[in-house]
Design a protein around this nucleic acid. Structure first.
Lengths: 231, 231
DNA sequence: CGCCACTATTGAACGTGTTCAAAAATGGGT
DNA sequence: ACCCATTTTTGAACACGTTCAATAGTGGCG
């Protein structure tokens, strides 16, 4: 099958007004009641359309969540600019930017922890590695590239171009922890962030050591391969 | 040798015969048709009981999969003994043991990739970090401890006791890649294993370097904290 | 206007996981 | 043997995601 997936700007044939209305309604209900407790019937009723009509615009309930990804990613990039303008050191930039993610995502924590399981399904368009998620993923990696390039950190020059993608993997790990985090205000995730980001910064700094160079050289192509489409 | 009991008989009040029958039937159908395409009605019918009776023994369809964990874990420990007896070097032991996991899990790849999404849900008992999964997790970490302790590898002595849990995290990463792996025979996962295990072995070896010691010292409590129950 | 192809919309119906009140079986105490 | 509490079993009923054939709207063209 070679049909084009409904990325936001790919096929603009369908009425965008109704589609946006349904999406906004869904995200609102998700935030209010959580993912599981929001039924497609409720979304349709609240948006003033029929159930079938919602399915005309969104292939499944999961597809509704794609909009959440775009929203969070956009808010995060915007909220991070201030940090990038202020901080110089890699540690502070990384920690600041990821803290911003926690802040931006905070209102959706309960909602997020309910649907993030779907993101682990490789077949789901919600997988962070899926083609549908590519725009959001690339934006996130681009943000981390700014974190690296705008910093004063010194490192193995071979590592620098690959570091943003490595940091993205790190961010995915933080998000996974956040999803599991039941502490009030997700304080445990914040602590994890504060304790791991300096370690990463120090490890990056150590990458200039001669003894480590062959290891890094061998690891780079592996990482490079890791983020290619699995097929 | 660490083994996993086949049925978590914490509450031994309920008849184990019917429970085992239902579980066996379910696992067989999962392997035959996949997880999603196996209905609870089919499981019940095939096992010769009513739908409600299946729910009397298993709280949900997901709970049926817990048995899969136990089975795989047990088979893996058993299949790994030969490797542990033969190999001496950390790289070979680690690679061999994880390759055994791939072999043991191979028949369930399609099935696995369909239900593993549930494992990422923190609320699900299928989460590898959930209390329900503790026996399987501990057995897996124990196996990796044998991998480490029986090897000739030299490392920072502070690292040694924590290494098995780190390797378990590594194994989770491999499994996650395996779940996504669509290549024939999951050859890509095998390749990833062969390329990353030596890197890990070399990194472990480098842990003895004086310059790395403070970094390792600071990282150990973080890792230790990571695997504690999130509550 | 009349026709036509296409888009948009509807809501009943289907399959599925899950629940629950009720019935059946079990087993110990008298 | 009888009773009664507990465990086990049943299957109809419910809620939800999803599908689909049918219907209504839309716009371009002669």
């Amino acid at each position: 099958m070679t049909t084009v997936q409904d990325t936001p700007s790919a096929t603009a044939k369908k009425s965008d007004a109704t589609k946006a209305l349904i999406l906004d309604t869904a995200l609102r209900l998700f935030a209010e009641r959580g993912y599981e407790r929001t039924t497609m019937r409720a979304v349709a009723a609240e948006a003033g359309v029929s159930v079938g009509n919602a399915y005309y615009y969104f292939d499944s309930k999961e597809h509704l969540v794609q909009g959440f990804y775009y929203r969070i990613g956009d808010l995060h990039v915007r909220a991070s600019q201030e940090v990038l303008a202020r901080e110089q050191e890699l540690d502070a930039r990384l920690r600041g930017v990821l803290h911003r993610w926690l802040e931006v995502a905070a209102p959706y924590h309960q909602f997020g922890s309910q649907f993030f399981k779907n993101a682990a399904d490789p077949a789901s368009p919600l997988s962070p590695l899926s083609p549908e998620s590519a725009p959001v993923r690339d934006a996130a990696i681009g943000l981390l590239r700014e974190v690296v390039d705008g910093s004063t950190a010194k490192m193995d020059p071979m590592l620098r171009p690959e570091l943003p993608e490595l940091l993205w993997l790190y961010q995915m790990g933080i998000v996974l922890y956040w999803v599991h985090d039941r502490s009030s205000g997700c304080s445990r995730t914040g602590t994890l962030l504060d304790s791991t980001a300096p370690l990463i910064s120090r490890a990056v700094n150590l990458s200039r050591l001669r003894v480590l160079r062959p290891l890094i050289q061998d690891a780079i192509p592996v990482v490079k391969n890791l983020l290619q489409p699995g097929q």
